[in-house]
Each structure stands twice: as C-alpha cells, then as structure tokens.
Design a binder for these strands. Structure first.
Length: 454
RNA sequence: GUGGUUGUAGCUCAGUUGGUUAGAGCGUCGGAUUGUGGUUCCGAAGGUCGCCGGUUCGAGACCGGUCUUUCACCCCA
C-alpha cells in the first residue's frame, strides 16, 4: 500500500448502511416539513464572501472556509501586504467566495434576490450541508447537514408555535426524547437595559449562557472580566436566581422588567407562545430558559434550542426570529423565524440509542443466481417483471461459483435467492430459497411475487 | 485560534530497559464442496510501524517538527 488516501479533517464518508439510516432521518424531517406546508429550495454551496462576512460575528468570520480565486490570483494581491504577512487583508484580495456557514443567511440573500417571484409569507425548507472551519470535537464536524425551516414575511407568533409543533412532531417520529428550550432576545435586551448595560447584551448573554455549566460564581467572574460593573452584576443576580415553572418565572420576570419597554414586550411574546402551545397537547416539554442565549446574534425575538434527554451532545436543533436579516441585503421590514435541525448530531444520537426501526433498510429483496449467458437472457425478463411489481431485485453480474453468489446474498442481507437453471427454464418455474430458513420451493412467477410480498 | 491526547495489516489491537526476519484475532482471497450462504477445516495474500528530520553501531520504541484522531477552552448544529 502506497500512501493511504484520506479526507479533510472533520469530514466523513458514509457507507451504504449509514446512508440508509441518514436518509431515514432526512425523510422523516422532510415529511414533517411538507406536512406543515413548507416547500424546498436549494442554494449554492458557495456564496460571495460579502454575503457571508459580518453576519455571524467576529468568531463566525474566522470560521468561514474561503475559496481561492481562480487563475493567477497572486498577481492581483498587494505585495506590501503579502510581505507584511497580513493574512486578513491579503485574503480579501485573493478570495471572493466562501462556503456557506449556515442556511439562514443564504436564504435571506435568496429572499431578497427573488422577492418579486415570492409570495409572502414564504415558507421554505432547505436540507443541505454547511461548512465551518472549526476544530472537530464531539458532535462537531467541519461539514454537516442542516435541515432548515423558515417563514419570512409574517410577524405572527403562530409561526413560532408551528415551529415548536414541528420540533415536537419530528422527534416524536424519530423517537428521540428531547426538551425544547425557549427564550427571547427582547427579554435579554430588557435585562441588559435594567441593569444599566444595554450595549453589553452580547457579553452578558454569552456569560449567562454558561450558568448551568459553570455556576453562578464563575458567571459573575466572567461578567466582571468582560468589563461589567459590580453594580450591574449585583442587579443581575435576581434574574440568575429565577426558579420555578414557566409561569412562575415569567411572573417574576414581568415584575423585574416592568421598567423596560423591550423587556416587557419580550415577556408578552413568551407568554403568548407558551399559552398557545400549552393548549396543543405536545409530547415534548417546552421550558423557558433565560440562560439560553447562544447562537447567531441576528436573532431579535424568540430563541429556540432543543437538547436530547438521553445523550450528552449539545443542542441538536436551534433557531429563532430575526427581524432584519433581509435588511442587510437591502430589503427592510421583513421578519423571519426559523429553526435548523442538526442532522449529523441527530444521526449520532440515533446511533448511540439504536433508535432505528427494524425495517429501515432498502436492501435488495431477491437475487437471481447467474448460471451463464443462456440462463441470464431468460432471467432478465423475470427480473424486469419483478421490478415492475416493486420488488427490489438484482441479478449477479458474473457467472461465478454458486458459493460466491450465495455468500454475496448472505452478506448483503438479501432475503431470497432465485435459481433458474436448465431444468427450471424448461418448466417455466423458479426455485426460490429463503435465506433465513434455508427453505427452498419451486414456484411460478406469481408464486414468487406472493412469497416476496408476504 | 489555545491546551492535552492518539497513530503498527482492510478493521480491533499486542510488540518487554532501544537489539536479528514486526505478531494475533477478525475480515479478504483460494481450496475441502464445478446447483447452494451462515458453521467447520486447510492454505495464501496483505506493513516504508502516519510523514519528515534528529540522537544512536542499531529506532516501531527516544527527541523535534508536521499531519491525523480525539477531548476541553473560545465559539457553536
């Protein structure tokens, strides 16, 4: 063996057995999306860098995969910058395209670009890979699939509720136990406002997002490190200490945020969403979580995150409302809300918990043994006939030894083998072997169909 | 981007304080069985020990770099 070929860090190959399982996940998600009236779109893997840059924060920009310009790209670069080793500025000169980082921003670009062809509210879903130049880690890949559903052009909170229903339905079908965490950016803005640090909302949210993980003391320490005043941190404490069920938390929050207009609006939104979902008999628990703040900073209203209950793997679905994403591309006043299912993490969860139904295989049902040219010519007709009846049928391509052909069927998990040699040909029959029981019977075509359909 | 971890046959892994020709199980291929798989038996193929450099009479083992794996941090699906 010379050098072993390999694939880039953080990417994966998927075998047939894995693809069958992944497709089960994609098909389930797609099915639910369609049930709620969403239509598919696709966008290119690469976007112009100016579409992507500046939408995900400073960190996000760093994690973008950039594509080198074609041709003699160095000739257009500034030698002074090259010699100075200024990677960032040189990058701008030699790269103008990048791989998409998520599906939401390309979607916003799509909406603006096609606004005259779109009927609003526009409900679309999109299942495609995205790329992030992150360091791989548990449940973290550099290439992974997102399954996005978004509604743009409607302010109604009914959309938020429908997204929660979709989450509930998808995970009910996949049989994954989850909790839906809900928060609202306006509430977070309100909190920042009443503690007198309205412009530090990002620092505040990033820190309190870690509450559950590192505890209140370390959160306070981090807030202090991020430059928040001791007085502000002091005023934040009642909020960090909030407890009880959703209703109790919201009541307390409502009082705390009374003086903040935006905060009060956020509380109202949460109340509305929770009131409606309460009446829907969902099997998934919806939990108000004020520490839920991570995620893209273009969110302006609801924020969602879904965590698996039985596997430690970070969030498997996330999303929220963004009031002005299209504004960045020159189309004001269009609000959108959406969520994204992380297919690769869902795949990991399903694998760990072995949650696939037994019949999730698209394996061949019937293999015809190849006995030679004459027999093949005869069998091909039978094969076509069976395929037309919807039976997944193949014929072994080479006149190999029986043993080899049988072993092939065995390893591929093919349930039945058909043998048609001279004898069967002359009688117009088929010898059918059940690979599980070893039982063998000679039937006509109709008999084979019945045996396979049973 | 920062810090730790990993790398030996297709896969999972042994390999002693540095010492001749690097092993096992599983898998693959062939045969026992030229119209019968799973079990059994026999046999074979398959390695630049991740890569590059260094120390040494001698390196799979030690040192440095690099890539890869994996985990944490930042951040995030």
């Amino acid at each position: 063996m010379a050098q072993k070929p390999s694939i880039p860090k953080g990417t994966r190959d998927f075998s047939p057995a894995e693809m069958v399982r992944r497709n089960y996940i994609f098909d389930t998600i797609k099915g639910v999306f369609q049930l709620y009236g969403f239509m598919p779109i696709e966008t290119p893997a690469m976007e112009n860098l100016d579409t992507l840059l500046g939408k995900y924060g400073e960190e996000g920009d760093k994690l973008l995969f950039k594509i080198l310009n074609s041709g003699d790209f160095l000739s257009k670069a500034d030698n002074a910058l090259l010699n100075a080793g200024d990677s960032i500025k040189v990058t701008n000169q030699i790269s103008e395209k990048g791989l998409r980082y998520d599906l939401t921003v390309p979607f916003a670009r799509f909406v603006v670009q096609h606004q005259n062809e779109i009927t609003f509210p526009f409900k679309r879903y999109q299942i495609q890979p995205v790329w992030r130049a992150d360091r791989p880690q548990k449940g973290r890949y550099r290439e992974f699939f997102q399954c996005d559903v978004d509604v743009v052009g409607s302010d109604s909170l009914l959309n938020e509720v429908e997204l929660i229903q979709i989450v509930d339905e998808v995970y009910r079908q996949l049989n994954i136990g989850v909790v839906i965490k809900l928060n609202n950016r306006k509430v977070l803005a309100g909190i920042a406002e009443i503690i007198g640090e309205a412009d530090r909302i990002v620092d505040i949210t990033v820190a309190i997002d870690k509450l559950e993980k590192i505890g209140v003391d370390k959160v306070n320490a981090e807030l202090s490190e991020r430059g928040l005043s001791a007085a502000a941190i002091e005023r934040l404490q009642p909020i960090l200490a909030l407890s009880g069920n959703n209703t109790e938390k919201l009541a307390a929050l409502s009082a705390l945020l009374k003086s903040s207009e935006v905060g009060t609006k956020g509380v109202e939104e949460l109340l509305t969403v929770l009131r409606i979902t309460d009446g829907l008999n969902l099997s998934t628990q919806v939990e108000l979580d004020l520490t839920l703040a991570r995620g893209l900073n273009y969110y302006t209203g609801a924020i969602f995150e879904v965590k698996a209950l039985d596997v430690e793997i970070g969030s498997i679905t996330g999303g929220g409302r963004y009031d002005d994403l299209t504004g960045i591309f020159g189309m004001k006043g269009v609000s959108g809300v959406g969520i994204s299912f992380g297919a690769d993490r869902i795949f990991d969860v399903m694998n760990q918990l072995e949650l696939y139904p037994v019949d999730v295989t698209a394996a061949t049902q019937l293999l015809f043994v190849n006995f030679g040219d004459t027999e093949v010519a005869h069998c091909l007709k039978l094969v076509s006939n069976l395929r037309q009846k919807g039976i997944r049928t193949e014929i072994y391509p080479d006149p190999a030894k029986m043993k080899k052909q049988m072993a092939y069927a065995d390893k591929k998990g093919i349930g039945f083998v058909a043998m048609v040699g001279e004898d069967e040909m002359s009688k117009g029959l088929i010898t059918l072997k059940n690979m599980q029981t070893g039982e063998q019977t000679t039937l006509n075509l109709e008999g084979v169909v019945n045996a396979l359909k049973a």
